[in-house]
Structure formats: C-alpha cells, structure tokens
Design a protein around this nucleic acid. Structure first.
Length: 433
RNA sequence: GCCCUGGUAGUGUAGUGGUCUAUCAUGCGAGCCUGUCGAGCUCGCGACCCGGAUUCAAAUUCCGGCCGGGGCGCCA
C-alpha cells in the first residue's frame, strides 16, 4: 500500500499511529542533523521530519533525493504545533517510486515566475501547482452542476460527430481534414446536429461539446479548440423558455463552484452567487445606452469588444453583473435564428461583466423559411441537405444555446488568459503538448 | 486577415556598438548548521534563437528565417 492518508485527511485520531503517505517531494530543507521534507499530494502538503542520529541511512536517502521525485513513506504521525499542519511524520520506511531529473524545466514552488509559454511547454509540472489544480477542481465542480441541473430538468446527454462533411454553418473558419477519399471538417459546434435531434422526439438534449475553430486570432480570450455546454429544447413557445433554463444553469454552476471553499482560498478569490432572474435588456436599449456614452455604435452593428466592455461598465454601475441582451437585429445572427418581425430576431446573448459567455435563440423550424435565410446569408442550401432533411418530416418549434466553459471560468475566477482554463490549450501556434 | 511587440544560464531578468572575461535573483552541485516552513551562510556550475550583412569591433545595428507575447476583427 502506497498511501493510507492524504495530507489533509490526517486528523487528531491518527496522531501517534503509523500511517503511510505518498506524493511528490516539494522541498528538502536539510539543517544538518535534522531535515524537513515537504511532501505534496492531491489534497495539499505535509512535512516529514527525519533525524540523522536516529536513522542515518534513511536520512541520507531522503535528503539526497531530487525535488519532485515520487516517494511513499511509512512512519509515525506526531502532533507538533511548530508545523503548519499541526502534525509531522517521522519516517520509518521509504519507498522511492520515481526519481525526478534535475534541474527541473519549471520549478513548482520556485520564487521566480515562469513565462506562460514555458509553463505550457511543461504543463504536467505546471499543473502540480495548487493554484492550477484549483482551477480544474472548480471546472469539475461546475461540470458536475451542469449534469445535475440538466438531468433534473429532463435533458438527455448526447454526443454528436466532430468530423463532418458540411463545411460551415457560417461565422467562422473550420479545420479541413482528409477523410479517406473525401474531404471533411472538424465541427465548429454541434449546432446542426443538436437541431436535427429535435426532430427525433428526444425533446431536450445537451452536450459538453468540443468546438474547433480555425480563426487565426491571437488574443487571451480565444482558443482554436474549446469546450461548451450546448443545449437544445423542443416545443418551446419562445426564446424566453431557453433563457430561463440558461440562467438557472448558470446559477447552479456558480452555486456549485462556491462550495469549493478550499479552492477559492488557494486562488485568493471571493465568490458571491448571483441572484435570479438575470436582467433582460433589448438590443435597441443597448444601442441607446452606448450612444449616450458616445460610443459611435450604429443600429444593426454587433457590439465589438470595446462596446461590450463599456456596456459591462454601464450595467455594473446599476449593480448588474449578468444580463441578457435580447431582440438582436436579424442580420447580426446566424441563419438558423428565428426572425421576430421584419428586422429583429429571437436571438440573445448572455453577458457577464461585459463579456459574452453564451449565445442562443429560438430557431427556425419551418424548412421554407430556413432555406430562405440560408440564401439570405450567402450560403448554399445544397450544402445543408442532410440538415434540412430533418426539417421536412415533422420538426417542432425549438431553441437552444451554446455556452463556453472556458469563458465562463474566466469570469468566475477572474482569470485574464483563457489558456489557464483548459488543460492543454490549442491556439494559433500551439499544438503540443 | 490587420497592427504592435519580444527572444541573454534549467527558470526569470540587467545589459541599446568597445575591459561583456555578460548583471542579479532563482535553480543545480559541494560543504557547514537539531526546528525549518521564501531556512541561513561559504564556494562552485551554467546563457547572448538560427543564418546572412554592415563595422577595426555586434548580445547590442540591418535583412531573412524560426519561436513567443499582446491588441483589433470574428466569436464562445
């Protein structure tokens, strides 16, 4: 047995008993006749204290190990006020499981910060840092919340193809790849598939989906491979029903994240759970507000980064963090978006502190209108044949949204670079690790 | 796609034409030290991205390449 206890699971009742711990050597402080070894495991760190006089052989072995080597140690757990955990372990048996090469390409607890590029090149070490693990523990918690909430609302989790034949649903560049004798593409989103599923009777589906986007952007808010909660629901009366699910989803994710008290402490972050319902503001009003602040935006335009931020400031002054922007101009939304009147649509965005984190709409379910809109967006209905087919044999009214997980985490944890929110980011130039 | 910006020991940096035999920190190695927790002290190790050009002289200037960072557009 390599481990009987994790560092943080040791309690007073374990004192004066023999326990076994395992992990990475974070630091060795050799004072001469006594040495302190800091051992790190997934829950935190603990201290091994070894006396030269008492066990010279073990002392030599332990103090000569390199940092980040992996060991398992059996020893008596002693209460000690001088140690941060309140206890220390006096090793009796040592098993060296893996010796780390020195010097490390990246120090886990070094006093000098490394460039993000260096960190990503050595991500497996970078992720040993408690702060980085905290991000992914919180990420896990919010994903659990997604499943829990959506399952409670009768949604079915699905998995749609990521290799597709149709080149684009518009809006972004896609990755091209060889599929035997054919040309194929990586899916930019599950949009067309989850809509097709609305014709099946599954009624409510969601997917934790990969998005692949070949845009050559180089910013801290973009990835070429990202994840999202994608959802679609049938038999809706209007987009408000979709927004209702979305705001409850976000609320549940936020709430579940707030239970990760230890992680927030590690990250030195505070969290307050937002109140429901979120504000709704129509696009026209957004334009008014922005024009009052002399932003120079004209009706029909998409907001753009600066305007999004400005709006975030305006809303923040009103004490609003989360808000839906509704009734977008039809021309600024994708072809599958349901029109509302002549120039408006049933499309909406959800913004948090000035950053768009989700966007959705009621979709068009009438195949004739859909074909018209495809043409109006300068796309060819022929390229969408298998998609359109699903609308010809009984398609109920429906709607849904896509919700970027990394963007969400950025806002949740006040992280400035989206690459921090994904284990192995893919950006304009990074393909490894 | 457009624009700005950078590349010096394992890591992070100083250095803008001439004792640069390249700074400092961290790290690594050796030694001393019985209560460390950013341990301390002594000694040592280790670097100018690649190619070409200018020059008496290039880490430093110019050109090309490779590899980064960031802003906008677009989006999540």
């Amino acid at each position: 047995m390599y481990r009987s206890h994790y560092s943080k699971d040791v309690t007073k009742k374990d004192y004066n008993k023999s326990i076994t711990v395992a992990g990475w050597i974070e630091d060795i402080r050799n004072i001469g006749s006594i040495a302190f070894i800091i051992l790190r495991d997934k829950r935190g760190t603990l201290q091994l204290t070894v006396l030269k006089k008492k066990n010279p052989e073990l002392f030599e072995k332990l103090t000569n190990l390199s940092r980040e080597s992996v060991i398992s140690v059996k020893g008596v757990c002693k209460e000690n006020e001088k140690v941060r955990n309140g206890y220390e372990i006096l090793p009796e048996m040592l098993e060296i499981l893996s010796v780390a090469k020195a010097p490390l390409p990246l120090g886990v607890i070094d006093k000098v910060e490394a460039d993000f590029d260096t960190r990503l090149d050595n991500r497996f070490i970078d992720l040993r840092k408690q702060k980085n693990q905290a991000i992914f523990n919180i990420r896990n918690a919010v994903i659990v919340a997604v499943h829990k909430y959506l399952q409670s609302q009768d949604f079915v989790e699905v998995h749609t193809p990521k290799i597709t034949a149709s080149s684009s649903e518009g809006g972004t560049d896609v990755f091209k790849l060889k599929y035997f004798e054919k040309e194929a593409f990586l899916a930019q989103s599950p949009q067309l598939y989850k809509q097709s599923l609305m014709a099946t009777g599954l009624d409510r589906v969601y997917e934790i989906a990969w998005y692949f986007r070949a845009e050559e952007h180089n910013t801290r808010r973009h990835l070429n491979e990202s994840t999202a909660v994608d959802l679609e629901m049938a038999f809706i009366n209007d987009e408000e029903e979709v927004m209702n699910i979305l705001e409850n989803l976000v609320y549940n994710m936020w709430k579940k994240a707030s239970d990760c008290k230890n992680e927030f402490k590690i990250l030195s972050q505070k969290i307050s759970v937002p109140e429901l319902p979120f504000a709704r503001i129509v696009y026209d009003e957004v334009v008014d507000k922005l024009q009052q602040r002399k932003s120079g935006i004209e009706w029909g335009q998409d907001l753009g980064t600066d305007n999004e931020r400005l709006l975030g400031d305006i809303m923040n002054k009103e004490g609003i963090e989360f808000y839906f922007i509704t009734k977008y101009p039809l021309e600024s939304k994708p072809f599958y978006t349901m029109p509302k009147g002549g120039k408006y649509s049933r499309g909406f965005d959800l913004a948090c502190k000035g950053v768009e984190i989700a966007s959705g709409s009621q979709r068009i379910h009438d195949v004739k209108l859909l074909e018209e809109r495809i043409k109006a967006c300068d796309l060819n209905p022929k390229d969408f044949e298998s998609y359109l087919k699903a609308f010809k044999y009984g398609m109920p009214p429906h709607g849904g949204f896509g919700f970027g997980i990394e963007r969400f985490l950025m806002e949740l944890l006040d992280i400035k670079n989206i690459r921090e929110c994904i284990l192995f980011p893919r950006d304009r130039t990074r393909l490894t690790p």
